[in-house]
């Protein structure tokens, strides 16, 4: 190793050590008060617990420590503890968070109030029944194509599909959405998670399905969304749900149902509202229409 490299390594480790010792200095011997919801669908109350902080402790660690040492019957759902599975979503001080990704030191000087996600029925303590979401998912027309896999697809056609595929289904966007949480529009509104899924399907170059009618007139209810962006604010994987999923879908719905020029064109061509899958079409629809493609 050259001198400069060794020097750099030394600097890096020294810098790390300093941060490390700072953290130890701030967390050493500190205790945090957690108020955790204890109860079920019938009702419940907050119960206060005090724990001693450990360096790097996340709220899930604190809850599991309480479960191990103070309240063995405390119910909490978790799995990967790495912000990948989306199981441990809950509300911390009134905002949806992944328990495994939220450090207790973020709440220094404040009490930490942990509740289950409230847009869905509580089963026990911090566990909610999110099965409603799987029912909605089943109602969305799945990926539909007349082509035989494996497909040849081009990077330029699929680059927009990476972002929606990052979703870990933590359902925090569903929880923070006031249409579900406050207005209880569950029977007529799919929620941000399923707009992300619908956007992925609608923009897929090989998909031939049509979900615009579902989104506008059916179970989707995209027009009930008033784009206040709470879903984007809470997404733990950083999906720009409103800008890149909901608004593009609203624009497609506007194309089909609210644009007088496009309505006139449809009348001339003799096509009904909501009968297209977006405007760009797919390779197979273009092939049927005799449009030459590169692929």
């Amino acid at each position: 190793m050259s001198d400069s490299a060794a020097e750099q390594k030394g600097m890096a480790s020294k810098a790390h050590a300093e941060v490390h010792s700072d953290e130890e200095a701030t967390l050493e011997g500190k205790s945090y008060r957690l108020k955790i919801f204890r109860g079920d669908a019938e009702g419940g109350k907050e119960v206060e617990y005090e724990i001693e902080a450990i360096e790097g402790m996340v709220v899930l660690d604190a809850v599991l420590k309480i479960q191990a040492e103070q309240a063995n019957d405390l119910a909490v759902r978790w799995n990967c503890k790495a912000a990948h599975c989306g199981s441990c979503s809950a509300e911390i001080n009134g905002r949806p968070k992944l328990l495994c990704k939220t450090r207790v030191e973020e709440y220094e000087g404040q009490e930490i109030r942990v509740h289950p996600i409230r847009a869905f029925p509580v089963i026990k303590d911090l566990v909610s029944d999110v099965s409603w979401n799987y029912g909605v998912s089943a109602q969305i027309q799945p990926f539909t194509t007349s082509e035989q896999a494996p497909f040849t697809m081009y990077e330029e056609d699929v680059e927009r599909l990476y972002e929606p595929k990052k979703c870990i289904e933590c359902f925090m966007c569903q929880d923070v959405c006031h249409v579900l949480r406050t207005h209880h529009k569950h029977p007529e509104f799919a929620g941000p998670r399923f707009f992300v899924r619908s956007q992925w399907l609608e923009m897929h170059p090989k998909d031939e399905g049509n979900r615009l009618q579902f989104l506008k007139e059916g179970r989707g209810g995209v027009q009930l969304c008033n784009i206040t962006k709470c879903c984007s604010e809470v997404c733990p994987v950083g999906i720009h749900i409103t800008d890149n999923s909901i608004i593009p879908l609203k624009e497609r719905v506007a194309d089909e149902y609210y644009d007088p020029a496009k309505w006139l064109m449809r009348k001339i061509r003799g096509r009904r509202n909501g009968s297209s899958n977006g405007n760009g079409g797919t390779r197979s629809t273009h092939a049927r229409a005799g449009i030459r493609t590169n692929g």
Binding site: Y154, E156, D157, E202, M203, H204, P205, D207, D243, I247, P248, E251, R252, D255, N277, G278, N279, G280, G281, T282, R283, H286, I291, T293, N294, G295
Partner: peptide, 18 residues
């Protein structure tokens, strides 16, 4: 503007097809 973004390219599913 979001609408301009849609008009320019957001409405297209398959860029290599148009």
């Amino acid at each position: 503007c979001h609408s301009l973004r849609h008009v320019i390219g957001g409405s297209v599913d398959c860029y290599s097809c148009v």
